[in-house]
Design a binder for these strands. Structure first.
Length: 272
DNA sequence: ATTTTCTCCTGCATGC
DNA sequence: TGCATGCAGGAGAAAA
């Protein structure tokens, strides 16, 4: 589920719940079942006794900054972090804090990731070393950058912007929404788009993601903010999930098609 | 090298 | 109500 706005929302929520600098990890207990990526279970104990200095977002990953290590968490499709009173069958990581609270990672589909790395190894980690710029944090994100990276590529613009090496944080929902705002058809080849259109697309991506963060993300099925409340950006979708409904601007029928293996939505009249 | 397809898993909506 | 089917926001491996 979670794309950039959802992970950002969870990150902000966790910082409020945890009060960084004030909490120490007593113990981390892992569930029996594996997550999507196998990780180095035996190293997790290195987190024991360490203070949580802060919780950060890197692309769609959450980083719990400890004194010497980072705990890495990726929410996959159905991951969420909550303070839980009682254990549930889908809790795969339980972080026992010194104040007796338990921060639990729940992930029914187990597409998420959890791992620990030394702080110094962060930028060399293969999960992070090939990431493109962050649309809401990095100066390096621009229409000019998209234009340059898209030359001589033979993929659709939607697949192009969902590739985390191009730009991080854009997943299936926000790709459709941003392309709608920019007036670009998702199936257009990325190498055929002008610099001017990429400048509009870069703005559209930024605007969509920032607005979604403001709304606390989008709640579809089981996304929850840290703490459990729902986001409400799903009420503001222009096209995502609106197959056969009317376009907000021109009232023509919104269409859908599978592009790059993912369902995609657009208005054939407003998007060229 | 680049691009497309498959796969990991459970839960939920839909339709018969 | 019960059962079968299809689909879901990610990302990486495998195949083309």
């Amino acid at each position: 589920m979670p794309e950039l706005p959802e992970v950002e929302t969870v990150c902000r929520g966790l910082n409020e719940i945890i009060s960084p600098e004030e909490h120490t990890i007593k113990k981390i207990v892992l569930g029996d079942k594996s997550l999507r990526q196998e990780f180095r279970r035996s190293l997790i104990r290195k987190a024991h006794g360490q203070k949580i200095i802060g919780i950060h977002r890197k692309a769609k990953y959450l980083l719990f900054e400890l004194e010497t290590h980072y705990l890495i968490s990726h929410l996959g499709m159905t991951g969420s972090w909550r303070i839980e009173e009682k254990e549930s069958s889908h809790d795969h990581v339980r972080i026992f804090l010194e104040d007796k609270r338990v921060l639990s990672y729940r992930d029914p589909r187990r597409f998420g990731q959890f791992d620990i790395i030394k702080k110094a190894d962060l930028n060399d980690d293969k999960r992070f070393s090939h990431l493109g710029p962050d649309p809401v944090k990095d100066e390096g994100f621009s229409g000019e950058m998209l234009y340059r990276k898209s030359r001589n590529r033979n993929i659709t613009v939607k697949v192009f912007i969902m590739n985390q090496e191009t730009v991080v944080g854009v997943g299936n929902i926000y790709a459709s929404e941003a392309l709608y705002l920019a007036g670009i058809k998702p199936q257009k080849k990325c190498s055929k788009i002008s610099l001017k259109d990429y400048e509009r697309l870069a703005e559209a991506i930024k605007e969509t993601l920032l607005e979604a963060i403001f709304c606390g993300g989008s709640t579809i099925s089981d996304f929850r903010q840290a703490g459990g409340s729902e986001g409400y950006f799903q009420n503001l979708f222009f096209v995502y999930g609106k197959d056969k409904e009317e376009c907000f601007y021109c009232s023509k029928m919104i269409r859908s098609e599978v592009i790059g293996g993912r369902n995609s939505f657009w208005c054939n009249h407003c998007q060229k």
